[in-house]
Design a protein around this nucleic acid. Structure first.
Lengths: 245, 245
DNA sequence: ACAAACAGTGTGCGGCATAAACAATTGGCT
DNA sequence: AGCCAATTGTTTATGCCGCACACTGTTTGT
């Protein structure tokens, strides 16, 4: 008889407890052969190596030599497992205390470390695509950024909007640089170039830009360009308020 | 015997021809009951109403009263169909000729219309997540933005980086506002609030920001805030170059 | 000693994309 | 007019996927 407050393995609310590490281990019963951490860890390894699509319950279980269904003794479902993967890959909040300079340098450093995360785990972009519940580590990163912005003198709403802005830029650069299916893109890019040359009059600005210097090749250049613009704009907001004359 | 230049229904290179409308209709054989346009159209309708996950070959075929496999006579595979859906949903390039004001106003108008696209088709965000080949309509939107930036006096590389910046902001705001699985989020948000209150010391800036005014409720506010910052930063780049004294 | 709680297995369902072989239809060419 | 080749739509089957359910065996509190 399960009490109404129970959180069995199949309880969807257990996902939050897993995320926050507040899970009570049972006393009776056989000792578990695996653990949520080890399952999540191998899932992240698979995703890092072969992409998020390669992460299936069967694939993870096979890596342990167990059956697929055994995983459901540890994790309520795949959605919860992905949430765990995300928070694991994100890791501890960045320590921006030792960053020299002002709030601009600290926020820029936050962005650079965030981008490094997306580069290390290319699947993170797709996994964090939709609206979802943030885990403690993700909240930690959010808090670190908000702390910098609050210290700089922005209001709560401005902190929120500024975070959305910086985070969006990092994700945009990450998407531009970390190509998941580069192979198929290369396969078609020749065809695309051909068509662009044929329909050049339909895309004059695009053709002109490509011929006039193309696009950035390095990862850092687009990130730093955007950061400079962003921080300049945010700075203008602050200075305009400090000296309203 | 298929010649080496042939593009049958199963040929993956046919995807590009479908995207660009350069497809030769056969003369022999029965008259087709469906068309690529109608298939793509209903696929978009399904995605608009029930999300991208609801779009399956069987679902589309059932909407026509045909079998699943019949679709493969028109489309090489699902990936190509999604590409067609994207370019269909994006639609014709925006006409920014009639927008009063300078390049700032035109670029802002581009961003607003782009956001409207994501609001109208919430699945577009996820569908355009990874690296992929852009269709003619998407290239048109890109060209429209590059034209504004080129006219303002930015170099080709700057045009590219600035586009990445603006586009990223729009996508960021779109992700924040258009919640796909809002239900499950709401289901957990109460639990999250409880945990935030309990672990408040771990996220001081976050708690302070929430208690001090929360976050933006409207769609427009975060978009306009970010746009102002972005355009200010871009403007500074131009004016700094015009008067280097 | 016994029963409750738990771990891992086996089986099976419904859904997904898609490959292959097939019958029916149509038009170009002789 | 008639044939053949090209094309359409169907049938059938394969191999994935997440996951529900019933079952066996193990551990531990009482």
């Amino acid at each position: 008889m399960a009490a109404k407050g129970d959180k069995g393995a199949g309880d969807p609310a257990r996902g939050m407890d897993l995320l926050w590490g507040t899970v009570g281990r049972p006393s009776r019963g056989p000792k578990p052969s695996m653990s949520v951490d080890r399952i999540t860890g191998t899932a992240v390894e698979i995703a890092d190596a072969e992409g998020l699509a390669a992460v299936s319950m069967q694939r993870i279980a096979a890596a342990f030599g167990f059956t697929t269904m055994s995983l459901y003794r540890y994790v309520p479902g795949k959605a919860e497992l992905v949430a765990l993967m995300i928070d694991t890959a994100i890791g501890d909040r960045p320590d921006l205390g030792g960053v020299p300079g002002g709030w601009r340098d600290r926020l820029a450093e936050w962005a650079r470390r965030c981008l490094r995360l997306y580069v290390r785990h290319p699947w993170l972009l797709a996994a964090t695509g939709g609206n979802r519940v943030m885990g403690p580590n993700e909240l930690g990163w959010l808090d670190a950024a908000l702390a910098v912005l609050a210290d700089a003198g922005f209001t709560p709403v401005e902190q929120h909007d500024a975070f959305l802005l910086v985070n969006g830029h990092v994700r945009s650069v990450a998407q531009y640089t970390t190509g998941a299916d580069r192979l198929r893109v290369d396969e078609w890019s020749a065809d695309l170039g051909e068509r662009l040359r044929r329909h050049g009059d339909r895309f004059p600005a695009l053709v002109a830009a490509i011929e006039g210097g193309g696009y950035s090749q390095t990862t850092d250049e687009p990130l730093e360009f955007g950061l400079r613009c962003l921080l300049d704009g945010l700075d203008r907001l602050l200075t305009g308020r400090a000296s309203p004359g």
